[in-house]
Design a protein around this nucleic acid. Structure first.
Lengths: 108, 108
DNA sequence: TTTATTTATTGCAATATTACGATAAATATA
DNA sequence: TATATTTATCGTAATATTGCAATAAATAAA
């Protein structure tokens, strides 16, 4: 099988999992940290900085864009990728709310 | 290839990705929410509540245990699984710190 | 227009993940 | 001891992910 049964979970559960999943790869964490540090950038710089092939970086950028955590605007031959501030905050809240659900000392 | 090049990333980046990855499946989110709600439980109840086969639940529990977010103590024939409070808070901090790295209005 | 530069897409190989039936393992109960 | 109950493990099929070489696409510069 290998395919997640999304239909048996709530929309909220799927949403939490989706945003967590995109953060579940070190390359994407590295890309996000790089974008935060530089406050703007292009793909080429990432390739040099991170050490993965250009198509691989492009693929990770695509996934980050798909969940909306970054946005890219074309500038000539290069692209200016940056954090999508509004969506970043949304994701922070989605994960934050989930992680805060657990009150201290629940069991055992 | 299909295997993540963990060696080219920092320990911190890998750590963030590892904890995010385990949260990157709705079944595991559902399991954690169930544990929080019930404050103690066994595998059988999860199978009924979530709607995946028992081996599948067992597998997800194993992954959650591997990153330390839950712990299980044997009680007769059943097992009492619960949130590992200390590790939960650690994970909350790991992800929280990362998500707080981004200051408002970085670019574009 | 030709040539560089930069990012995206395609195609593929290797590995990982998800899910479950069958079965094992462990303990409680009759 | 035999049987039931509960969770773990094994084996396997289907799908997803990761990574990269090759190449396309798009624009800038010569």
């Amino acid at each position: 099988m290998g395919l997640t049964k999304t239909e048996i979970f709530t929309e909220e559960q799927n949403q939490i999992a989706t945003v967590a999943k995109v953060l579940g790869h070190p390359a994407r964490i590295a890309i996000l940290e790089f974008l935060i540090k530089l406050k703007s950038c292009v793909c080429g710089d990432l390739v040099k900085d991170i050490g993965l092939a250009q198509p691989t970086i492009s693929q990770h950028l695509k996934e980050l864009k798909k969940v909306g955590i970054i946005k890219g605007t074309i500038e000539g031959t290069s692209v200016c990728y940056c954090i999508h501030q509004e969506n970043w905050d949304k994701i922070k809240n989605i994960l934050g709310n989930f992680l805060n659900k657990n009150a201290t000392g629940s069991c055992c």
